[in-house]
Design a protein around this nucleic acid. Structure first.
Lengths: 224, 224
DNA sequence: CAATTAATGTCGCGC
DNA sequence: GCGCGACGTTAATTG
């Protein structure tokens, strides 16, 4: 639907959109999106499901939609003029298939830990600690423990995360029996700042070649 | 536009949407959104501006849109059947007016610092340091300095931020004259991990009741 | 259901 | 333009 409208939201914050021409999308579950003709995929304003849309009119006879959620969130849309209004039955969507996210990277590296450092072998994925799981826990050729943090894009956050894990892990005498736990920061892309910080902290950085790893895994793509 | 379509994205990851009926929105800047009839405001697939949309046809004569961005990102939309197609000139949007929450929380706590810890008095808001301003700088009943970091939702990031401030502040002999600077981590909600980390670092956690604070501030809501 | 983390995050500010 | 932090983050996964 395309309409001249004014929108007011009150909930976790309050927001106001002056009267202007915008696109209104009402989905099957009652959720509402208010889009302008630019910006990115995020609507100017919206109401997430579950919610209820009630159509009414003001005292002036202008259409007023009120969308309310289970919480106290309310979205009020004053509709001055409707330029277009179409409705369609879409049915359920078969859903999105994704490939190439961090989980895939972790699976591939778990199968080929030696690509990170020579002689590295996997102990387990998602190794638990008090502050969350370490992506990969490995052992090197000397038997010393090595914690691996995997990111699609390596930034400062990831380095700090690995550092916190190492601080905890190095308190565990079982893990440090063969020397202190080392850290490897593995990512498809490592930002310069993150690399500097990691190396300053004594961590090893490893650039991961996703396509090459996938090749190792898939015999049809193996070259020799 | 409503159409039966199949969508493939290749860029930072690869994603595939099987043939189904969906809503396609093409904005003035060439950006494209692919929405299903449910979920929240995030499209199933999209291309952000700046990007270019080219309309073509496959060898079978089926419409094929190709959207490319400056990077190597490409979105391919195979359109089997068009159920609806409308186009409108929207003009530029006057934009959204927001009224945030965290700032308001800081104002309220600045007026009622004693709700954080008994005997606490405000020195100043946005107390400047070399790495950024501390939300609230206070003094306790003994005259010792207390730094307060305020978050709507307290997570690990906020604890680290407060810790960095304290490290700097404790180098200042003027502030540490009456003992080391303490830290209070104040939030409407504090995640377990953040609480553990904060207490491990010797920081105090304070849960803030936004409504109660607002009540203190507003005589019309005061009960006695 | 709560908690934790990734995201094609997006958005906005400050340097 | 980059870096950093907030977001009505949203979305997915796991205990």
């Amino acid at each position: 639907m395309v309409a001249r409208c004014q929108v007011d939201y009150a909930g976790r914050l309050t927001a106001h959109l002056p009267m202007a021409t915008r696109v209104l999308m009402i989905k099957a579950d009652g959720s509402v999106l208010v889009h302008s003709d630019g910006g990115s995929y995020k609507p100017l304003n919206w109401m997430s499901p579950p919610c209820v849309l009630r159509e009414g009119t003001t005292d002036d006879g202008v259409a007023l939609w009120t969308v309310t959620s289970k919480a106290e969130d309310t979205l009020q849309i004053l509709i001055e003029e409707v330029l277009s209004d179409t409705s369609h039955e879409l049915g359920i969507d078969p859903g999105l298939q994704k490939d190439g996210v961090e989980k895939h990277l972790q699976e591939l590296l778990a199968e080929h830990p030696a690509t990170l450092a020579e002689g590295l072998t996997l102990v387990r994925r998602e190794f638990p600690t008090a502050i969350g799981p370490v992506d990969l826990m490995c052992r090197d050729a000397t038997g010393a423990s090595v914690a691996v943090e995997i990111k699609r894009r390596g930034e400062i956050d990831g380095v700090l995360q690995l550092e916190r894990y190492l601080e905890l892990l190095n308190r565990d005498p079982l893990l440090t029996a063969k020397g202190p736990v080392r850290g490897i920061f593995a990512a498809q892309e490592i930002k310069p700042q993150a690399r500097v910080l990691a190396e300053d902290k004594g961590l090893t950085c490893a650039l991961v070649d996703y396509d090459a790893l996938r090749g190792l895994d898939d015999p049809t793509e193996r070259l020799f």
